[in-house]
């Protein structure tokens, strides 16, 4: 049973309160908020003029312009919206490996990001997925929602899904439409078409950040000899004789897989970060997230 506080102490939380999730484009949230919106609204940031029409608020008429031109113009200001952040947390069987498990590391990361977002008046939704989106916590806002969100994330860490299938992300539209920020946390170790899944989020108006969590054994296997490798999700068996030559081939394949993820995200305008499951979240990860433009 995962601790719903994820072991974060108050000093760490105060430190991350100074951070905020960055959006790389204007958001259009469900309500007014602190983030620059693509709509016109009531902020102090001037946006444009337009002709006055009947029914407009007289308070926004530019009287100076009326004095000079004898025509009524309305001053438009950029709106500021809330950002809706959806955390897609992969809790499939393959995430239950590593020390600590990839699922726990992914959950702790999701909890931190949710905490930062809620503390900055954004709304946070959590989607737990494996072979389908099997758990969805609708958008929550305010610091009071933090325990709910963390409880949901902890439950997902403790209940592995049978398999990973990025095709389920296409069905995200059933839960929510409209722009937002999607943070996909997974190990991306699957035969399913992750490109199609990430692209469907982009198509749904989401600004996608992909975070790959790998265990140290996946990055640098230490096994030697003859083994029958059993896939934790599919049960598929693969017989290998782990020689240095084969391990080099495996690392080459992993590097090709990672490069494919990086290249895809770069082309799609998405952020990508690969972390180890045994990484120190309080240290390097937050700075890495800042480096790739996820946190600011």
């Amino acid at each position: 049973m995962t601790d719903a506080t994820f072991g974060f102490d108050s000093a760490f939380l105060r430190r991350v309160e100074r951070l905020s999730l960055l959006n790389r484009q204007a958001v259009r949230g469900p309500a007014a908020g602190p983030r620059s919106s693509s709509r016109h609204g009531a902020s102090v940031e001037f946006a444009d003029f337009r002709n006055y029409v009947t029914g407009d608020d007289f308070r926004r008429v530019d009287w100076k312009a009326f004095a000079r031109l004898d025509r009524l113009f309305l001053r438009l200001y950029r709106a500021e919206d809330l950002a809706q952040i959806t955390i897609f947390l992969d809790h499939s069987g393959s995430m239950q490996f590593g020390e600590p498990t990839k699922a726990l590391t992914a959950g702790r990361l999701a909890a931190i990001l949710a905490y930062i977002a809620l503390h900055n008046y954004d709304t946070v939704a959590v989607a737990g997925w494996g072979d389908q989106i099997d758990r969805f916590l609708p958008a929550q806002s305010g610091n009071a929602s933090i325990p709910v969100v963390w409880r949901t994330i902890a439950d997902l860490v403790d209940t592995p899904a049978p398999a990973t299938d990025f095709a389920c992300l296409r069905r995200y539209g059933a839960y929510r439409r409209g722009p937002g920020i999607a943070i996909v946390i997974s190990d991306f170790m699957t035969d399913s078409d992750w490109r199609s899944g990430l692209r469907s989020l982009r198509a749904a108006g989401q600004e996608v950040t992909a975070i790959q969590v790998l265990s140290p054994e996946e990055i640098d296997p230490t096994m030697r000899g003859d083994w029958k490798l059993v896939d934790a999700e599919s049960g598929r068996e693969t017989e290998v004789t782990l020689s240095p030559h084969l391990l080099r081939s495996y690392k080459d394949a992993l590097e090709r897989h990672t490069s494919a993820l990086v290249d895809f995200c770069r082309k799609e305008g998405s952020a990508f970060l690969q972390i180890r499951s045994d990484v120190d979240l309080a240290g390097t990860v937050l700075s890495d997230l800042q480096a790739v433009g996820v946190l600011g």
Binding site: F97, D226, L229, D252
Partner: peptide
């Protein structure tokens, strides 16, 4: 005859299958 091997559960054989596609396991 095939060598009898010890089983080892891994998160995914996704990458292993790419490098061991010439080994028949079943």
């Amino acid at each position: 005859l095939k060598l009898r091997r010890q089983e080892y559960r891994v998160p995914s054989t996704f990458l292993w299958r790419q490098v061991m596609d010439d080994i028949q396991a079943n």
